[in-house]
Amino acid sequence: MNCNEALLLISAAVDGELSFTEKQQFLLHISKCEGCYGEFDDAQRTKMIIKERVVRFKAPQTLINSIMQLTSLSPKETF
């Protein structure tokens, strides 16, 4: 595997989307290539920061109630 091929696989490697063979070849390449290892490491850390730092909001109770109501209405009230 050369650098161009490895770079194409970086996001898939970060997201666990590589096939078994692809993964083996990719790991072998980055163990020998500092540049590609750096790209991989950067991408992985960027993913982590997004996962950890982007705040998740909870749906307001009014919305929860109305969705719950939607699924507990009689046929007459629904249509």
Binding site: L7, L8, I10, S11, K47
Partner: peptide
């Protein structure tokens, strides 16, 4: 795949 790569960069 490539959008994720470029987006993360």
């Amino acid at each position: 795949r490539s959008r994720l790569f470029r987006g993360r960069k």
